[in-house]
Design a protein around this nucleic acid. Structure first.
Length: 473
RNA sequence: GGCGGCGUAGCCAAGUGGUAAGGCGCGGGUCUGCAAAACCCGUAUUUCGUGAGUUCGAUUCUCACCGCCGCCUCCA
């Protein structure tokens, strides 16, 4: 299996530190607002990576943090006249709901920065003791010059960084490139006691401290959105490796951004694409299919039409298990038409695609190829020309592969609707069936229209009507 | 200015030094009371942004150019 490692800017053979086991850390959100489409993409990208590693048989330890102390949280809290903690706790809860709605497997550990102050203090103390950090009026800064490897992840050198006009000059820092490990308390800000007086941690130190706490000084995968490469992860590496002198994370994986095109995410009017709104108007699995239809490292342009298009494609896959249930009961025998061999080929092709830096678009191509093969086979089963058992097995293969991508895991939430509607649909379907038997098609079509209005579709098959809640679109 | 990426059919999107997966859409057909779903056939061979080069051969490598985008201490 190969993965693209940003550290080396190349695809590398993936070899975990401990055979059969993968330890990974992904940067989570700063909870000061609802999570948005960009967070969804990152979450889904790493969810797929995690699921596939599991599918391959690795034992995966997955850590995703919450940065629950931050300028934006404090600002939001001040606006509302509440404690910062109240803001962060609220949006952590909202994020967890959103992640669940997207079918994200919860992390094994979801550490919060504020609950790891002692770990951070210990790390900062070690950096100060080692001569990598210095104290100025209650602030502690990392001295970038003392860590020559600074820049190795982002491909920057120290001179270029100095040339960058956007570096804010702070006279108290020995070098403009130095960054804060600890910020002395200002009035109205949350603060913790430290050897340098009350204050709060800098942005980067939490991830170094928490990753090492839960995954060890050296672990396999560190990921996040590509914007985190610099400065965040560059600083994490400096903080950790200066102290441990060991490789912090070995493979650095980044997802690309979601672009909004003309409809830029404007905070002004209603088109902020937060996950809460998105799953209102789209099937979450269609959204997932849309996002993984582009390779995780490439930018993707979000459009509602694009998601609706994927919803239609998703239907092809969703019908597969229904077809298996319908035909499976027949127990029909016959030749297998070489289907078992095709299934093995599909499995292998899926693995080839995913083993190549998680090439989900290619893997999806394999799934759709397989579904067409299976439907064609199903037609022959319907005509009594093929055995049904290989088909049922084929569908279970398809579902297993789809599950490795987080697809076909569940029906859309609430798609079945309220029980009374369900009962009403059932009645109408029976009435329609009887009308059709009388060849009263006018009545039958009217009933179908009514069923349609209730949000269900009815299709006639040789073995009777098949009903399903309408999804997608 | 520095670093990096992208430009493939109507739309989305993989991919390979030897002549282009898949999805959506569209056209034709089979099936159906009609549909729907499914299946079959077709849908980039003056071609993979433009020009030049390397090569027996390039969409795939090199260079230039055009267009678009990301990062350079808010940011998934």
């Amino acid at each position: 299996m190969k993965v693209y490692n940003t550290l080396s800017r190349s695809k590398e053979e993936f070899v975990p530190l401990t055979p059969g086991e993968v330890r990974m850390y992904v940067c989570g959100v700063t909870p000061y607002d609802f999570s948005h489409i960009g967070h969804a993409r990152s979450a889904i990208a790493f969810d797929v990576i995690r699921r596939y590693l599991r599918f391959k048989g690795f034992r995966v330890t997955f850590v995703k943090n919450y940065t629950d102390v931050d300028d934006r949280i404090i600002r939001r809290a001040n606006e509302r006249g509440v404690e910062a903690r109240e803001v962060s706790e609220q949006y952590i809860a909202e994020d967890q709901k959103d992640m669940a709605s997207l079918g994200i497997v919860p992390p094994d550990v979801a550490p919060k920065a504020t609950e790891h102050i002692p770990e951070m203090l210990r790390l900062i103390e070690a950096l100060v003791a080692g001569g990598f950090a210095y104290v100025v009026d209650g602030d502690v800064y990392f001295e970038v010059r003392r860590f020559p490897a600074y820049g190795k992840l982002s491909g920057k050198n120290l001179e270029e960084l100095l040339a960058g006009a956007r570096v804010e000059v702070d006279e108290r820092k020995r070098d403009p490139r130095d960054f804060a490990l600890w910020k002395g308390a200002k009035p109205g800000e949350p603060a913790w006691a430290s050897p340098w007086g009350p204050g709060r941690p800098g942005w980067h130190i939490e991830c170094s401290a928490m990753a090492m706490k839960y995954l060890g000084e050296s672990f396999d995968v560190h990921g996040g959105g590509e914007d985190l490469i610099f400065p965040h992860h560059e600083c994490e590496i400096a903080q950790a490796e200066a102290v441990t002198r060991r490789t912090f994370a070995r493979y650095w994986l980044y997802n690309g951004f979601v672009n909004m095109g003309a409809e830029k995410m404007s905070k002004s009017l209603g088109n902020t694409l937060n996950i809460r709104d998105l799953v209102q108007r789209h099937d979450p699995e269609a959204l997932r299919l849309f996002l993984i239809g582009t390779h995780y490292r490439s930018p993707v342009e979000f459009t509602d039409e694009g998601v609706r298009e994927r919803a239609r494609a998703l239907e092809r896959l969703r019908r597969m298990p229904l077809e298996a249930a319908r035909l499976g009961a027949s127990g029909a025998g016959g030749p297998d038409g070489g289907l078992p061999a095709t299934l093995a080929t599909a499995r292998a092709a899926f693995a080839v695609a995913m083993d190549d830096d998680f090439n989900t678009p290619q893997a999806l191509g394999v799934l759709f190829d397989l579904s067409r093969t299976l439907y064609a086979y199903a037609d022959l089963v319907g005509r009594g020309e093929r055995a049904v058992q290989p088909f049922v097995e084929g569908v279970s293969v398809l579902v297993a592969l789809a599950n490795a991508l987080g697809l076909l895991e569940r029906t859309p939430a609430g798609a079945e609707g309220p029980a009374d509607v369900r009962a009403r649909v059932g009645t109408l379907v029976r009435e329609r069936d009887q009308a059709r038997k009388r060849r009263d098609f006018t009545r039958g079509d009217a009933l179908r229209a009514e069923i349609d209005r209730l949000g269900w579709s009815v299709e006639d098959t040789p073995s009777g009507p098949r009903i399903a809640p309408k999804t997608g679109g």
